[in-house]
């Protein structure tokens, strides 16, 4: 009897949770449509002059919770496509391709003028983009490419991960060390960032310009990176460069150096290199404890805005976003405020 009651209770909870989740998703939908309605209403009341007409932009993106990169990316979009800059921005965030497709569909029916997409998956976008073209909506891709024919979009502003690695390795070569003994800590194997950042360094290992002391993946895990560096220190092998494929792992590596009393940073024995340009990492650079931080730039909004406003013309549809790399010797507080991610 009691068991049956428990089963019933469980079923009730399941149903309730489904209902709640359905509710929450639909309520958020409502919210977004309400919000857009709200902006439309305010627009109609406060924009009697046609000169003040806002450019309607729909952005389909991944949610800011995905990563520090995405958080900065979303904030940048919101800052550039603001009302003050003459835009009316509608946003939809999802990690799922089908939800993104629905959102894009919704923006097309809403009658946006420009559609900006960072797709969750590279496939399945043909239909929607064709519809957008029929409706006269101009499509821009940012951050990620989509597998469609080039005439379905105006331009794609993307990062070149390989170039990012090359920039960092070129910086390292410019340091003109007598010897390069590198501890290479990799990210999750197979991710875009890992492949790009590893590729450039691998070329140097192959050509013999740099010596590989160790090359291990810490799967973006700070603590694992620390263990790897500790093991190298324990083995007594000599090294003078730490090339970590993100800031967190560089911090883990530095923790191991600190514990062993090995000096690092500008003018010291070990050069520390990280990626991502988190604000806290850039502060380490400013304190001269690290030497270099590379960034896969999340700032594509200004380029797209410039194209929309006719300030920039598109010659090649694939626009490679300029990658930044910061040297501790030249970094300023202003750079941290503008380009740093997070807090």
């Amino acid at each position: 009897m009691k068991k049956r009651f428990n089963v019933l209770l469980l079923a009730a909870i399941l149903v309730l949770s489904f209902a709640l989740s359905a509710c929450s998703s639909s309520s958020s939908d409502n919210k977004s449509t309400e919000a857009t309605k709200g902006t439309e209403a305010t627009k109609s009341t406060e924009a009697p002059k046609p000169a003040d007409k806002l450019i309607k932009v729909g952005v389909v993106n991944n949610p800011p919770s995905e990563s520090g990169y995405r958080e900065a990316n979303v904030k940048d979009m919101e800052a550039v496509f603001s009302k003050d800059n003459g835009y009316e921005l509608k946003t939809a965030y999802s990690l799922k391709n089908d939800e993104q497709l629905q959102a894009a569909q919704g923006f097309i029916t809403d009658g946006v003028e420009y559609l900006l997409i960072s797709a969750a998956e590279t496939t399945g976008w043909d239909e929607v983009l064709k519809k957008a073209k029929e409706a006269g909506i101009k499509v821009y891709l940012f951050d990620r490419m989509i597998d469609v024919s080039e005439d379905l979009y105006e331009a794609a502003v993307v990062s070149d991960m390989a170039k990012e690695g090359d920039t960092a390795v070129q910086w390292l070569l410019d340091q003109k060390l007598d010897e390069y003994n590198v501890i290479h800590i990799q990210g999750a194997m197979g991710s875009d960032a890992q492949i790009g950042r590893t590729g450039a360094l691998d070329k140097q290992f192959e050509s013999g310009k740099m010596n590989k002391v160790v090359q291990q993946t810490a799967t973006w895990d700070e603590a694992e990176a620390k263990k790897i560096v500790e093991t190298v220190i324990n083995s007594g092998k000599d090294f003078n460069v730490i090339y970590a494929e993100n800031d967190g792992m560089a911090k883990g590596a530095v923790a191991a150096l600190d514990e062993a009393g090995i000096k690092h940073g500008v003018g010291e024995k070990v050069i520390v290199m990280g990626f991502d340009c988190n604000k806290w990492a850039l502060r380490e650079l400013l304190a001269q404890k690290w030497n270099y931080d590379g960034q896969c730039s999340p700032f594509q909004a200004q380029i797209i805005s410039d194209i929309i406003q006719g300030k920039k013309t598109v010659t090649d549809k694939k626009i490679i976003n300029e990658e930044k790399g910061f040297d501790a010797k030249t970094l300023t507080q202003a750079d941290i405020d503008t380009y740093g991610l997070g807090e």
């Binding site: 990563s67 895990d221 700070e222 603590a223 620390k226 967190g248 911090k251 883990g252 806290w280």
Partner: peptide, 16 residues
């Protein structure tokens, strides 16, 4: 302890 090791919390990779 995980936080203390590095003085940082990465919710994605802590004790992954």
């Amino acid at each position: 302890i995980g936080v203390g090791r590095l003085g940082l919390i990465n919710h994605e990779t802590l004790l992954l």
